[in-house]
């Protein structure tokens, strides 16, 4: 187990190094002044330019520059935005939790709807309800996320006027930014109308969550259904039936775990897709997350911001993927180091 852990940590460190190296190289490819691209500050005088060059070690060799970049990066000094001149670290720390929040809602829906529905429809496969689920999952999976979001806005916000169209919460509520997660912030903010604020935030969250989670839920349904159908035909399930165990006992003890083990890594990989989708949907719903923020940065050709934002998203997806892979690998008992060697 420790060996396995070290192996995954090693993988992570090397990939992070490669990512950081890539992000270090980016300003050299961007158009415009290298110094502005790196620092985000357009020098107004020669002294300022020289001071900046000295700070980023631009006159030294490339290795020294990289070293300076690394130490700045890990110190949390990610430069400033070339447009707003705000500290990028603070900006990202402000925007990122919102994305994470949206992603978690969608993941929650996908897990607690997709997996149970997948199990049910796989266990009762080939009956009309199952066919309905399969049809729904194919249709749902085929929707482009941004289109679905626009349809939801047209339908529920503009036509029916049931739900709010943009943002995380109405501006009336003075929610302070503490953790970045809106519900926690509402509770921590100590408002006099906490209940209304929570309800309002919830109504805001419904449409973005739905438009992201439908695709992922359908995917979860399809994987789970397929997997449980395969497992139910396995010899050990027939053997368990022949031993006269109850259906429930067989499901809990034998099919559930065995059906989840092969699909967990696949499901975990979907989280990166979820992040991407969340970023797209944020733009449409003006959700104050990193996706929205990055798109703004791209519009304004804010190169330091693009660099930092991309690096953060990439690091997040990477950490998540490797951690989940490690967990799924660690709980799978059939992949033990001590396999019996055939003599």
């Amino acid at each position: 187990m420790i060996k396995l852990f070290i192996r995954y940590i090693n993988l992570m460190v090397i990939t992070i190094f490669a990512l950081v190296l890539l992000s270090f190289m980016l300003p050299f490819f961007f158009p415009g002044d290298l110094l502005t691209n790196i620092s985000g500050i357009t020098p107004q005088s020669l002294e300022q330019r020289q001071a900046l060059e000295k700070a980023f070690a631009l006159n030294e060799s490339i290795f020294v520059q990289f070293q300076v970049y690394l130490s700045n990066f890990f110190a949390g000094d990610w430069g400033v935005s070339s447009v707003s001149q705000l500290n990028l670290y603070d900006e990202i720390a402000y925007a990122f939790p919102a994305t994470l929040e949206l992603m978690l809602y969608a993941l929650f829906v996908a897990t607690f709807v997709g997996i149970p529905v997948g199990f049910l429809s796989g266990l009762k496969h080939h009956n009309p309800a199952d066919m309905g689920v399969v049809t729904f999952s194919i249709v749902g999976y085929s929707f482009p996320v941004f289109w679905l979001a626009l349809v939801f806005i047209t339908l529920f916000c503009l036509q029916l006027e049931w739900l709010p169209m943009s943002g995380r919460i109405d501006l009336l509520f003075e929610v302070k930014h503490i953790t970045g997660f809106v519900f926690i912030d509402i509770i921590l903010s100590d408002l006099n109308n906490t209940k209304e604020a929570i309800e309002n935030a919830f109504r805001h969250a419904i449409l973005p969550t739905l438009s992201i989670s439908i695709v992922t839920t359908c995917l979860f349904i399809r994987f789970t259904r397929r997997s449980i159908m395969d497992v139910m035909q396995k010899g050990y399930i027939i053997a368990a039936k022949s031993r006269g165990f109850t259906q429930w006992q067989i499901f809990i003890k034998h099919s559930f775990k065995n059906a989840l083990i092969p699909i967990l890594p696949i499901l975990a990989l979907q989280i990166s897709t979820l992040v991407t989708n969340a970023m797209i949907v944020e733009t449409i719903f003006s959700w104050p997350g990193i996706g929205n923020w990055l798109i703004q940065a791209i519009y304004q050709q804010d190169y330091p911001a693009i660099r930092a934002g991309m690096l953060v998203v990439a690091l997040f997806v990477l950490t998540l993927t490797i951690t989940l892979e490690f967990i799924t690998r660690a709980i799978d008992p059939t992949k033990d180091e001590t396999a019996r060697a055939a003599v």
Binding site: K234, G235, Y236, I238, A239, A240, S242, K253, H254, K257, N258, I261, D332, P333, T334
Partner: peptide, 11 residues
């Protein structure tokens, strides 16, 4: 059963 290894739950 015929194939003992596949008739035992691997997990």
């Amino acid at each position: 059963f015929q194939e003992p290894t596949s008739s035992l739950d691997p997990s």
